[in-house]
Design a binder for these strands. Sequence first.
DNA 1: TCGGTTTCTGAAACCGATTTCATTATGCCA
DNA 2: TGGCATAATGAAATCGGTTTCAGAAACCGA
Lengths: 340, 340
Amino acid sequence: MPRKTIADVARVAGVSKSTVSRVLGGKTRYMRAETRERVLQAINTLGYRPSVVARSLVSKRTQTVGLLISDIGNPFYHEVIRGVEDVAVAHDYSIFFCNTNYDPARSRQHFHSLVDKQVDGVLFMASGDYSSWTLDEAAQHALPLVLVDWNVEDAPPQSLLSKITLNFVPGIHEAIAHLVSLGHTRIAHVSGPHTLATARKRKQAFLDAMEKHGLDAAQAPVIEGDLRVAGGRQALGAILEIAPRPTAVLAANDLTALGLLWEARNRDISVPEQLSIVGLDDITLASQVTPALTTVSLPRYDLGKIAMQLLLEMLQSGECFTRRVDTRLVIRQSTAPSPA
Amino acid sequence: MPRKTIADVARVAGVSKSTVSRVLGGKTRYMRAETRERVLQAINTLGYRPSVVARSLVSKRTQTVGLLISDIGNPFYHEVIRGVEDVAVAHDYSIFFCNTNYDPARSRQHFHSLVDKQVDGVLFMASGDYSSWTLDEAAQHALPLVLVDWNVEDAPPQSLLSKITLNFVPGIHEAIAHLVSLGHTRIAHVSGPHTLATARKRKQAFLDAMEKHGLDAAQAPVIEGDLRVAGGRQALGAILEIAPRPTAVLAANDLTALGLLWEARNRDISVPEQLSIVGLDDITLASQVTPALTTVSLPRYDLGKIAMQLLLEMLQSGECFTRRVDTRLVIRQSTAPSPA
DNA sequence: TCGGTTTCTGAAACCGATTTCATTATGCCA
DNA sequence: TGGCATAATGAAATCGGTTTCAGAAACCGA
């Protein structure tokens, strides 16, 4: 039993395909109500559903977008994805999910597949695996792109691209202010890999905030982590060896902070009494662990929503946009007055 | 600059569309090598890529599958998704990602969208939001389905559906055996919502294992949780009020176990000295927390791989399959000899 | 040289929708 | 009652591919 087509509906309703197509598209301005009813009837009795594929062929729109992320295992993305998805569902768009696995080659393969499948646009959130080919090829195919947390200056001229930048400054400044107000002066930072632009941005915000609060940024210990729990655990060891020992740590993300927290527990260093820990992201887990994590909150759900909304606006208007998403501090139980 | 078409290639190569189509499809059996070369040349110089949309219209294949899950925030899914995606990428399939959010209405909307977009098959992993309409509609559209962890007996006759069942029995039996060997006799279970079939299955496996080890299953405390951290935290309170107090708990999943763990920490009950905790799933976090979680491991990455492979096999052969995925115990630090 | 295979290629139909353009009804006014 | 907008519908082209079918070219044995 093959799929019902518009021709079947037309036959049953006793009208032409054009007429059926019109009621499908809502172009019912010049149409007898009775005719429309007959068509609707036929559609119902047949259980007809129009073929998106056929429609896409002529309309050149697929009601589909691509979502490229680096790592589904990273909790940072979960809320983002939810945000993207909620907006997509509300506008009847579908999402091609692409996990690049931090692999540029795979990233590229995915991108080509998206082009071939004629997605209407792409959300590029795999900030690590960026190469300029992406922008060139997107421009070449006139494919609208939304870039999250990329610093792009060399975009091809006629490219359709919108950017969302993450502003870590306010949240990190608040965090340092909070620690300083608790009497901390020896504050360390566990950063992400220096190869990542986003890690460098966070670190710089940390150094600036230290400077601003009259602390010697040049002397502030910075340990390079990997944005994961394991890196946090290792970093704790390094921190304990610094003399004089820091009384507070700002981690580049929550996973790192959790690594610090759990390793501290392992070594019988009590948090927050002996060591205050501040995370960054505010992943779901942050509020669920004990002690709950004080952290710089990045509104990830909103980020996802904004990204998808931006894409939809681009699709409608053909214009490009830039947005900024701010951070702020959420105080919980992992920070306390300095023991010093 | 509109997209290049097969006609452009044909013109440049000085051949007909049919010929170009043949080299595209590899049907080059009766073709002069020189002709094929000319076509390849033209494809290259034009940077031509065939339109998947147009191709799908005639082939009725979209090289696309739908993936329905209930909650992207649930770490259970991450590895599963990775498994699915790895197989999909390897076979040049794309994935429509659908988060049902535990909402049957949304689940249905997603399903319809997938049908409209003519996916080649669907992986249904949103076990909670099951209703029989799914099977009926899938059968009606001859849409191949893979069901994970569903008990389905009333499938429509000609439906193309494969099933993967999760076998919790061996892992849970091992867990109870492990606890018993540590001297525990008062063992509680924090289950998932009894409305979920999968929660009932786990609970039953727990009761059977108790029975098998000579413990009184009828007396074993079972507390209903919600498969999340919050539920675990609450359940701990309930457990502490039971007299005589249980010395060990088997949680229905790792999130619940983590909730137990963190709430225990909150109330100064030391794990595992005073209370042994066993999780289920072996999410990534389980091995990263302190103390690391003893847990019944469900091979989630493999599960994802198997599911996608099964779908591909169905697509090829038109046959249906059933698979079973087993569990086993992973012993870490959250279990210790009974204090009693 | 001829008829019959075997290679090789192109014209045209088709997939299932949309859209343009033309045509037929209908209503209204002189 | 004729003429002319305006309303309502259908025929056919189109989107970008694949596939069928038929015809041309080359080859081969008699």
